[in-house]
Design a protein around this nucleic acid. Sequence first.
DNA 1: CGAATGTTTGATGGGTTTCAAGTGTGGTGG
DNA 2: CCACCACACTTGAAACCCATCAAACATTCG
Lengths: 232, 232
Amino acid sequence: MAVRPQLCEACSIKDLTFCSSLHGAEHDQLRQLLTHVQFDSHSTIFHEAEEADYVFNVTSGSVKLYKLLGDGRRQITGFLFAGDFLGLALNANYSYTAEAVEPVTACRFPRQKLEKLFDQFPHLEKRMLGMAVDELAAAQDQMLLLGRKTAKEKVASFLLMLARRQEHRGEKTDMINVPMSRSDIADYLGLTIETVSRTLTQLRKESTISLKDNRHIEAVGLDMLEDLAEGL
Amino acid sequence: MAVRPQLCEACSIKDLTFCSSLHGAEHDQLRQLLTHVQFDSHSTIFHEAEEADYVFNVTSGSVKLYKLLGDGRRQITGFLFAGDFLGLALNANYSYTAEAVEPVTACRFPRQKLEKLFDQFPHLEKRMLGMAVDELAAAQDQMLLLGRKTAKEKVASFLLMLARRQEHRGEKTDMINVPMSRSDIADYLGLTIETVSRTLTQLRKESTISLKDNRHIEAVGLDMLEDLAEGL
DNA sequence: CGAATGTTTGATGGGTTTCAAGTGTGGTGG
DNA sequence: CCACCACACTTGAAACCCATCAAACATTCG
């Protein structure tokens, strides 16, 4: 890939973002659309059912996506980190709520203008489709987790997911960064906070993991975690 | 939309399929790529991890998609019916297994040739992206179901899903068609066959549904099902 | 330092699974 | 045409995993 001056924060994240497939003039056009935005911890980026006017590219921090049932039960459908794309609903409305777990910075694109750019640069649309397909595969893995894995297997899978995405972003992997609360983990895995806590304690007692503090976990027995995640 | 002669089985399904967005000459090119294929009940259309050489458009029958854990536990990630698209993995390999629930007919497209056609007809790629986004939204709903709904709510949501898709295909909705076995339903909802059976019995005793036979269910209290599905 | 919030741990309970029989039901062959 | 068998589905009883309720402990922040 040709050398290209760094034009936006999104591109600074080592070719993980969708705009990093563009060159020179093309990228300039994209750049004119974007606005840099920030969100504090626990602030809402957008609400479910809200009009989907913007799409985002996370450049730092972490985000949780969730849906609610009528009585308040919550399911977190995904976590996003630097480089992840957000809001690729091409429908009129968002299908979930997005909330900052940690302080978040992101590039924001007006959806309609971005879609117009697709006609000019089919490259971009291909990349978008690729991302949607990847997300779909991840969603199917998560269905397998939610429907068929035990609490222990769920927690193991979750820690592995964090570790792998950390690696993918090119960060150190000796310590797993866990920016989200036990409550968020529980709502992601279809468990309660108590079960998440108990399971982590159990994994610690079995020396599969080592808890540095609530936000940092070391995977001592990575093989063990992998076997658990695959249901062996 | 312009009047267009019926060119392939896929298009005969009232504008539900992705090729129905094409016209005359464009459609002819697409048509040259497709092969009509059939699958018997319980036959495998493709396996997880297999090379994704083809994509399909279901023209009749029904299909289940599933993933397996190491010890054989199964999660059905979706059911497909006439008009549904299958295998939109743009990756090299399928991420799940597809198996015919009833005898299936489908249009088969060589993936690589289809992708080349995308460059010619951006229309098609847009439609593909739209389908991927829709599937993603459905997957997120299913995560909410698997992670946070009770058995009763799961079964109610399942029946509603079948009813709505039947309606979407333009079929009669007085009776819900249930082509899949209790075992398939259980693996779709993250339950056991016994729980599915018990829950259906319970809904029947409450007069929310009426079981004509194992493959045909009447939704007597549709409001009740909707409330259950939304967690009210 | 104290209040508020988040996390862990314990005791108990319940929804779902597991195990185990029954009860259809469709297909096959006599 | 019906007896028979295989298989799917239903129903019941017991067990279990995880949820709920409750309290202690830890951490953060004013």
